[in-house]
Write a protein that binds this DNA or RNA. Structure first.
Lengths: 210, 210
DNA sequence: GTCCTAATAGTGGTTAACCACTATTGTGTA
DNA sequence: TACACAATAGTGGTTAACCACTATTAGGAC
């Protein structure tokens, strides 16, 4: 029986390379290739692949956001994330969320193949360069309240920081604007914010912390 | 007769995608694929391809270094450079050196193909997003529009950046809220801003510049 | 089964931001 | 003097953010 995969990356040429490499694995079938987080999420929910290979840095929902959202919904799909940057926070977040594969975009093709094989068996595989960048200084978290936010709330906070309005976010996530309004209220309450546009201000000024 | 090319990029997966795309061009033969600037230079000197497709950001010699070196030695090889970053300086350097093709790594595959076709004919081809990032880097470096603001407008902009609302600013300056509303409109117009809360976003993110 | 939480969606209301106008006053300057 | 511009203030309208509720559904925990 063939394993199934979906691939998400917003760089068409890189994605082409990725799909080409994965196509060379005989026991793997690529169900879909998409270019953003929202499409990735929808594809995973619709097709339930054995493994999802996601770029972290994508417009809208990041690869980690997608993992977080899917994994919080009891899914069998295993996750491999890719990133350009040797960022300790990305790595820690990925491990916390339950990502099995962690690969740098400049890793060798063989690393990618080993990673997919390993993850399909349910094992972890992280980039060989991992020790090198784990020694980088960790950004300290000044906002412990952020931990109290749910996965959905964090995603919405991120989209607010990207200057998206509530109606825009609602359209992106395919829910009612009222729901976003509701989430906003809850976020404001959890973070203890006050005043007009306080959430937007918070989101913009603390961008990078979440 | 087939045209010939060499490809240089230090990211194996991206390079794979690139080679795969170029292989689909029937009249193009890839003579070599390399992963750094030195190898790129030696390959070009040895094989004299019609076109060299080079990543700018490579270890050792950058793609632009390679172009510069080869072009100063009277070569017939045409150059296409690739970069991740929307950097005005890279672009200016490339044009100065005599690079014909300039493509962003997140451009579409069709852009890449059009670029190669164009460059092989001796014509220039630059990324479609070029105007966007040429104005973007300019905006990031300085805000010439800020000079057009009057003294009162600058004061109001500063107070907005301090998270004051229009009624608060009106109270502070002992004028009507309508007047502040009016100034806001004028500032928004002068700065060419658009969208909800765009002025607040601008004020916060460019705080320190005024 | 009960309790709690998250996510969803709705009603109804207030305020602020923004947009497009008009209009008056004062201050320069060609 | 006439023109341009800045600052002031107003009318009237739309949209978004926020606030306070209620309510349903689905999972987990006890």
């Amino acid at each position: 029986m063939k394993f199934t995969a979906i691939v998400a990356d917003d760089h068409p040429i890189f994605r082409k390379g990725l799909v080409e490499i994965l196509s060379e694995m005989k026991d793997l079938e690529i169900l879909a290739e998409v270019s953003n987080g929202i499409d990735a999420y929808q594809s995973i929910i619709a097709k339930r692949p054995d493994v999802a290979i996601l770029d972290i840095e994508m417009p809208g929902l990041s690869g980690l956001d997608v993992c977080n959202k899917v994994l919080s919904e009891k899914s069998e799909t295993k996750f491999i994330v890719l990133t350009m940057h040797r960022d300790k926070n990305f790595f820690n977040d990925a491990m916390k969320i339950g990502v099995l594969g962690y690969i740098l975009k400049d890793n060798a093709i063989t690393d990618m193949l080993l990673c997919v094989e390993s993850v399909l068996k349910g094992n972890k595989y992280v980039t060989p360069e991992i020790e090198e960048f784990l020694t980088l200084t960790e950004k300290e978290n000044d906002f412990p309240q952020l931990e109290k936010l749910t996965a959905t709330e964090k995603i919405i906070l991120k989209l607010i920081a990207e200057s998206k309005t509530s109606p825009e976010i609602a359209a992106l996530l395919f829910v009612s604007p009222n729901t976003i309004d509701n989430h906003r209220s809850n976020i404001v309450k959890k973070l203890g914010l006050e005043g007009k546009n306080s959430l937007l201000k918070f989101a913009i000024t603390s961008k990078g912390l979440f």
